[in-house]
Amino acid sequence: MTAQLDPAVQEFVDALNANDADRLFAVLTEDASMSDDGVERDLSQWTDSEIFRSNARMAIESVGPTSTELVADYTNSRWGSMRTTWRFTVRDGRISRFETGQA
């Protein structure tokens, strides 16, 4: 299923699942931004807390028609497992923004 994703989004998912911060930040633009459940978050703090320090994993359930939207079972040691939506804005092959929240 993940073969349908935009290549930048696929790299984000792969980097997240590998718990590889350098790889994840390499696919983001320098001015990348994000929100969680509709609230703007500091990207560096959020990824540190919600991805890297909590050993996050994402299992994709479905990919949207634009290849930059997905629904996933998102699991980390902080919150457990939850069904989440993810929407990415890709600019020049890199992610400039992502929005996530409970599905």
Rank of each mutant, 00 (worst) to 15 (best):
74 Y>Q: 04
87 R>Q: 14
32 A>P: 11
21 A>E: 15
40 E>I: 08
82 M>L: 11
39 V>G: 02
36 D>E: 12
69 E>L: 06
13 V>H: 05
101 G>C: 11
84 T>P: 00
56 A>I: 02
26 A>T: 09
89 T>W: 11
38 G>P: 07
56 A>K: 03
71 V>E: 15
49 S>G: 08
96 S>Y: 04
85 T>A: 03
93 G>K: 13
55 N>P: 01
71 V>G: 05
61 E>C: 01
51 I>D: 09
69 E>C: 13
64 G>N: 07
40 E>F: 03
72 A>E: 11
49 S>Y: 07
9 V>C: 13
31 D>L: 01
80 G>M: 10
26 A>L: 10
61 E>H: 00
7 P>D: 08
20 D>A: 03
69 E>T: 15
91 R>K: 14
34 M>G: 09
86 W>P: 04
50 E>T: 01
70 L>R: 05
46 W>M: 02
47 T>F: 10
61 E>Y: 00
52 F>W: 14
39 V>C: 00
77 S>I: 04
18 A>D: 12
23 R>M: 04
48 D>E: 15
47 T>H: 08
33 S>N: 05
90 V>C: 12
90 V>H: 10
45 Q>N: 12
95 I>M: 10
30 E>F: 05
87 R>I: 10
31 D>K: 08
84 T>V: 06
51 I>H: 09
49 S>M: 07
86 W>D: 03
60 I>T: 09
25 F>M: 12
64 G>V: 13
94 R>E: 13
16 L>I: 02
39 V>W: 03
33 S>Y: 01
66 T>C: 00
14 D>M: 06
55 N>M: 11
23 R>W: 00
45 Q>D: 13
39 V>T: 13
98 F>W: 12
44 S>Y: 03
33 S>A: 09
87 R>A: 08
48 D>H: 14
8 A>M: 01
57 R>Q: 15
36 D>V: 12
36 D>N: 15
61 E>T: 08
60 I>P: 03
7 P>W: 12
35 S>K: 15
22 D>F: 00
91 R>S: 13
15 A>V: 06
94 R>W: 00
63 V>A: 02
29 T>I: 08
16 L>H: 07
12 F>N: 06
32 A>Q: 06
100 T>S: 14
13 V>E: 03
31 D>V: 05
41 R>L: 08
61 E>Q: 12
79 W>M: 07
53 R>A: 08
99 E>V: 14
28 L>Y: 04
78 R>I: 07
37 D>S: 15
87 R>T: 10
95 I>F: 02
28 L>E: 09
24 L>H: 09
43 L>P: 06
23 R>E: 10
11 E>H: 11
92 D>A: 15
22 D>G: 15
65 P>Y: 11
79 W>T: 10
22 D>Y: 00
31 D>N: 15
87 R>L: 11
31 D>C: 05
60 I>C: 05
62 S>F: 04
63 V>F: 06
101 G>Y: 13
80 G>S: 14
48 D>N: 11
45 Q>V: 08
58 M>P: 06
8 A>L: 02
31 D>A: 12
59 A>R: 02
32 A>Y: 04
79 W>C: 00
40 E>C: 02
53 R>E: 12
66 T>G: 09
37 D>T: 09
68 T>Y: 02
52 F>T: 05
41 R>N: 05
87 R>C: 09
55 N>F: 08
24 L>V: 10
70 L>C: 05
